[in-house]
Simulated assay, not measured.
Amino acid sequence: MAHHLTPFEPFADLIPFDPVRGFDQLLREFGRAGLPKQDIPTIRLDVDETEQAYAVTADMPGMNKEDIQVRIDGNQVVISAERKRDTEQKTGNIVRSERHWGQQYRAFTLQCPVDEAKAEASYENGVLKLTLPKKATAQAHRLDIH
């Protein structure tokens, strides 16, 4: 006759004790609440550097040139844009809407300060191009002691 009973061991669950068991899953679930929605587009950009300037290329499809703002403060660059919703009334029921209406924002810091007076910007076919010349930096000067 086979013995099908399992002896009761009250501490069996504690033998492979892992104090953070399930904690990583909790953090993943908690982190999702604070992350931006994946369907909201962000400003994607490339930054190229030469000895004289930075060249920034930012993808901003569907934006109007008038709705884009670029702010430069020393070595910090802020690109922001706002797409406004049309107030046009449409008949029928919208089944799904994936078009984004709202603000986009991107800020980054460059290694060298930018000469704001010589900076240039252009926007064509959904691509913002910035040419940001570097400010002339003063060379280190050795001070003679008398």
Score class of each variant (00 low, 15 high):
Lys135His: 02
Arg71Met: 03
Asp67Tyr: 03
Ala81Arg: 06
Ile40Leu: 07
Phe11Ala: 13
Met63Asn: 07
Phe23Leu: 15
His3Leu: 09
Ala117Leu: 09
Ala81Pro: 03
Gln139Val: 10
Pro61Leu: 04
Glu51Tyr: 01
Ile68Leu: 08
His146Leu: 10
Gln25Trp: 08
His141Gln: 13
Gln104Asn: 12
Arg85Gly: 08
Pro10Ile: 12
Glu49Val: 14
Ser80His: 09
Leu110Val: 06
Ala140Ile: 05
Ala58Val: 05
Arg106Cys: 07
Val127His: 00
Pro113His: 04
Met1Gln: 07
Asp24Lys: 12
His4Glu: 12
Val95Asn: 07
Val47Trp: 01
Gln76Trp: 02
Asp144Asn: 11
Arg32Trp: 04
Asp13Val: 08
Asn75Ala: 07
Gln89Trp: 02
Lys129Cys: 00
Pro7Trp: 07
Ala138Leu: 15
Arg142Gly: 04
Lys118Ile: 01
Tyr54Cys: 06
Ile79Asp: 00
Arg32His: 11
Leu5Ile: 09
Gly92Asp: 11
Ile68Trp: 00
Lys118Trp: 01
Pro113Leu: 01
Gln89Ile: 05
Glu98His: 11
His4Leu: 14
Leu5Trp: 06
Gln69Met: 08
Thr6Ser: 12
Ile68Met: 04
Ile145Cys: 02
Gly74Glu: 05
Thr131Met: 05
Pro113Cys: 01
Ala81Gly: 14
Ala55Ser: 09
Glu49Ser: 15
Lys65Tyr: 00
Leu5Thr: 11
Thr131Pro: 01
Asp67Arg: 01
Ala55Phe: 10
Val95His: 10
Leu130Glu: 07
Lys37Ile: 01
Trp101Gly: 05
Gly102Cys: 12
Ala12Trp: 07
Gly74Lys: 06
Asn64Cys: 00
Arg71Ser: 09
Gln111Pro: 02
Pro41Tyr: 09
Val56Pro: 00
Glu98Thr: 14
Thr91Trp: 05
Gln111Glu: 14
Phe23Asn: 03
Val56Arg: 02
Val127Phe: 00
Ile40Asp: 07
Arg85Asn: 08
Val114Ser: 05
Val127Glu: 02
Ala53Leu: 13
Gly22Tyr: 05
Val20Asp: 14
Thr109Lys: 15
Glu116Met: 04
Ala121Phe: 00
Ala119Cys: 07
Met63Ile: 03
Thr91Pro: 08
Pro36Cys: 07
Val70Ala: 02
Asn93Phe: 11
Asp115Phe: 03
Cys112His: 10
Leu27Trp: 12
Lys134His: 06
Ala119Phe: 02
Arg28Asp: 14
Ile15Leu: 15
Lys84Gly: 03
Arg99Ser: 06
Ala33Cys: 01
Cys112Leu: 07
Asp39Leu: 11
Val20Lys: 13
Trp101Met: 13
Gly31Arg: 14
